[in-house]
C-alpha cells in the first residue's frame, strides 16, 4: 500500500502546497516538518520550473524565487531524504513534465522511491500522455496522481477508473490562484468519480479560507491549498514558518471533524 492512502485516514485531508527552495531549501525543510506536525495530511512539494503554465502569478513568483536561489532536482531529493529521517508524512512532488523527462524518467522515479517521495503530480501530462512516465511509476510503486477539471466531463470516468492514490479535482477553470467564489462543478465531479472508483478526491485551485475548505469537504475527501500559503511565504520570507504553521493548523482544525 502506498503511503498516500494514509493521508485520508485522519478525517478530511488538508494538503498544503509549497515550492521547494522558496525562499530556500532550508526553510522548505522546516516548513514540511512543521506543517506535518500542525496537521498537514499530505504535502505537495513543487519542483520549480521556468515556465509553469498551469500556475497563476503567486506560484509563478515562487518558481522564480526558488530557481534564482539555485535549487535543483538533486538538492530537492536530498532534502526529502533528510526529512524522511524524522517524518513519515506523505509527500507528492508537483512539477512539469520537462524536468522529469530531461532528468530521465526512470532515474527520476527511482530517485523518488529512494528518497521517500510517494506520489507525483504533473499538470501537463494528461491521461493520453501518461505512458511517458507511468511504467516507471508502476515499477517503483509511486502514485502518478490524476487530475480532473470542470471541462473534463465525458473524460472523468476514463480517468477515474485508472487513477491511483487520490484524484486532484481542479475546482474551476483557469490557473492556480486564490478565488473568492468556487462554483458547484466540483461537487458534480466528485460524485461522478465515486460512481466508478472508490478513491479519495481532493479539491484544489482557489481554496484559501476555512469556510471554503469546510464547504468543499462536505462532499470531498480533502482540500489542497497552494497560493494562499505561498503568499505567506512570499510576505514573510525566511521568517515565514510560524505563520504558515498557524495557517495550516487553522485549516486542518476547520475540516478535521467534517
Amino acid at each position: 500500500m502506498n503511503n498516500i492512502n494514509n493521508a485520508f485516514t485522519n478525517g478530511k485531508a488538508f494538503i498544503p502546497f509549497i515550492t521547494a527552495g522558496d525562499p530556500s531549501i532550508e526553510i522548505t525543510e522546516q516548513l514540511v516538518l512543521q506543517m506535518a506536525e500542525a496537521g498537514a495530511d499530505l504535502i505537495e512539494l513543487g519542483i520549480p520550473f521556468s515556465d509553469p503554465v498551469a500556475e497563476g502569478e503567486v506560484i509563478q513568483g515562487a518558481n522564480i524565487r526558488a530557481l534564482s536561489g539555485g535549487v535543483t532536482v538533486d538538492r530537492i531529493f536530498e532534502m526529502v531524504k533528510r526529512i524522511r529521517c524524522k517524518c513519515t508524512v506523505p509527500i507528492a512532488f508537483m512539477t512539469y513534465v520537462n524536468p522529469v523527462f530531461c532528468y530521465g524518467p526512470e532515474k527520476f522515479i527511482r530517485n523518488c522511491k529512494e528518497a521517500g517521495v510517494d506520489g507525483l503530480i504533473i499538470p501537463d501530462l494528461p491521461y493520453e500522455e501518461k505512458g511517458e512516465i507511468m511504467p516507471f511509476c508502476t515499477k517503483y510503486g509511486i502514485n502518478l496522481i490524476s487530475m480532473i477539471a470542470p471541462t473534463s466531463k465525458n473524460r472523468i470516468r476514463m480517468i477515474a477508473k485508472e487513477a491511483k492514490g487520490f484524484i486532484y479535482c481542479v475546482s474551476s477553470m483557469g490557473v492556480t490562484g486564490v478565488r473568492e467564489n468556487i462554483g458547484d462543478e466540483a461537487r458534480e465531479m466528485v460524485e461522478l468519480v465515486k460512481t466508478v472508483n472508490d478513491i479519495p478526491c481532493a479539491i484544489g485551485f482557489g481554496v484559501s479560507t476555512p469556510e471554503q475548505a469546510v464547504k468543499m469537504t462536505k462532499f470531498a475527501d480533502g482540500v489542497i491549498v497552494g497560493s494562499a500559503i505561498v503568499k505567506i511565504v512570499e510576505k514573510y520570507g525566511s521568517e515565514c514558518v510560524p505563520y504558515v504553521v498557524e495557517y495550516v493548523r487553522t485549516m486542518k482544525n476547520a475540516i478535521k471533524t467534517m
Binding site: E132, A149, G174
Partner: peptide, 22 residues
C-alpha cells in the same frame, strides 16, 4: 502516445483543463 506524432515528436502535453478544447 499515438495522436499527432511526428516520429517521437509532437503529442498533447497540456493540462487536463484544456484537453476537451483540443
Amino acid at each position: 502516445m499515438v495522436k499527432g506524432r511526428f516520429g517521437i515528436h509532437g503529442g498533447q502535453y497540456i493540462p487536463e483543463t484544456l484537453m476537451n478544447a483540443v
